[in-house]
């Protein structure tokens, strides 16, 4: 899922400092699962905005709402139910949701309430870790299912580097060296010789280095 984290309250208060009516808009997708922008977080942020503005002696009308997703055209239409209740939207969705609102509502002011961080998973309660970089050309079949792009600080394809010490990364000793993990795992699945294969120079165009990416499925388009 996409992992996000709420921005500091004061940064959000600064965005809405001139607003009179706002809609704090959550998303029931990834940001609900990672507790950054679901219904519960909407309730908290709305409360913090009201309190913060009150402390500044300002009045603001805060409406709370949550959409099924903010990354689908048809769900964005759901914003119409709050028509007239806002002059700007504070979106708690990931950056995709903010972009979708901006794309589909050309005159609506929309602010991001979260920092969209990475593609990750829940390592334990309250802890999320990056697992995928969305590079567009997956190599996990060569690396025992462990991603060297997102989980190696240097995104090395032919690791480990000389900074791997006791299975830890030299950039941050709290981080496991993914190349050590790849080595150990390939051994466990009897594929250790894969470590001897030299990965060729990579074409990074699929990773967004060739501009914004698009996926088109002829079998689904109408």
């Amino acid at each position: 899922m996409i992992i996000a984290e709420r921005k500091p309250v004061n940064e959000i208060l600064d965005m809405v400092k001139d607003a009179k009516k706002i809609l704090v808009l959550g998303c029931r997708g990834c940001v609900t699962v990672c507790s950054a922008g679901g219904e519960r977080e909407v309730e908290i942020l709305a409360s913090l905005i009201r309190l913060g503005m009150k402390k500044q002696g300002k009045k603001i009308q805060v409406t709370e709402g949550t959409l099924v997703r903010q990354c689908d055209r048809e769900y964005i239409d759901g914003i119409d139910q709050w028509k007239g209740k806002y002059d700007s939207i504070v979106s708690m969705a990931c950056g995709v949701g903010v972009n979708f609102i901006a794309n589909l509502r050309p005159t609506t002011i929309v602010y991001p309430a979260v920092n969209t961080s990475f593609f990750g998973g829940s390592a334990e309660q309250g802890v999320w870790t990056e697992q995928c970089a969305g590079c567009g050309d997956c190599v996990l079949h060569l690396t025992g299912g462990l991603c060297p792009i997102s989980r190696c600080a240097k995104s090395l394809f032919n690791g480990p580097c000389g900074g791997s010490v006791d299975g830890r990364c030299e950039i941050n000793p709290e981080t496991e060296c993914v190349w050590q993990l790849i080595h150990d795992r390939l051994g466990r699945i009897n594929n250790q010789e894969a470590m001897n294969t030299i990965a060729p120079i990579r074409d990074w165009r699929t990773a967004g280095h060739g501009g914004p990416r698009k996926t088109l499925r002829d079998d689904l388009t109408l």
Partner: peptide
């Protein structure tokens, strides 16, 4: 939110 609401 319950605690914040109390302040509100």
């Amino acid at each position: 939110s319950t605690l914040l609401k109390a302040f509100e």
